[in-house]
């Protein structure tokens, strides 16, 4: 069955291994090229929050906003980006209500989690995990 990324951030250490690994898959040592971003709720004394694609299965706003057909619905939730069809209009970014898409000036394209689950494999506290989708 298809899976999508889920998280429970209470136990997060803030090590950012997920982001570093995600960028590595894009071929960069970076945080900017990562589809998953770990921030604090206002300072390190607050809890950590995870900003990542929610893996929408219906009413997929970013997909609806994409006029060039660069985004396609992914089986199990979320979207897949066809780089060749993307013109960098950034409409997907403003369409995502949880702010999970950002633009990489370096790669000149939006960074969208493709729900591959690699970050979850490297999370030392299992805050990130893949969940089966009905």
């Amino acid at each position: 069955m298809a899976k999508r990324l889920r998280y429970d951030m209470n136990a997060c250490l803030g090590c950012q291994t997920c982001s570093l690994v995600c960028s590595t898959l894009s071929g960069y040592h970076s945080l900017g090229e990562s589809g998953i971003n770990i921030k604090t709720k206002g300072g390190l004394q607050g809890k950590f929050v995870c900003v990542v694609c929610a893996g929408c299965t219906e009413n997929i706003s970013c997909l609806e906003a994409c006029k060039t057909g660069a985004l396609k619905a992914r089986n199990g939730g979320g979207v897949l980006l066809d780089k060749n069809k993307c013109i960098g209009c950034k409409k997907c970014i403003s369409a995502c209500s949880i702010g999970a898409i950002h633009y990489s000036d370096n790669l000149d394209r939006p960074i969208i989690c493709r729900q591959c689950g690699t970050c979850a494999k490297y999370c030392p506290h299992n805050c990130l995990y893949m969940e089966e989708v009905e």
């Binding site: 590595t24 960069y28 900017g32």
Partner: peptide, 26 residues
């Protein structure tokens, strides 16, 4: 503010070593 990035020269070799060390660490 660390907003930049560095292209990885040999992604496969680097990630193999990273994986081994990550496993060792945890």
């Amino acid at each position: 503010w660390g907003k930049g990035d560095l292209p990885i020269k040999n992604q496969k070799a680097y990630f193999k070593v990273f994986q081994d060390l990550h496993k060792k660490a945890i």
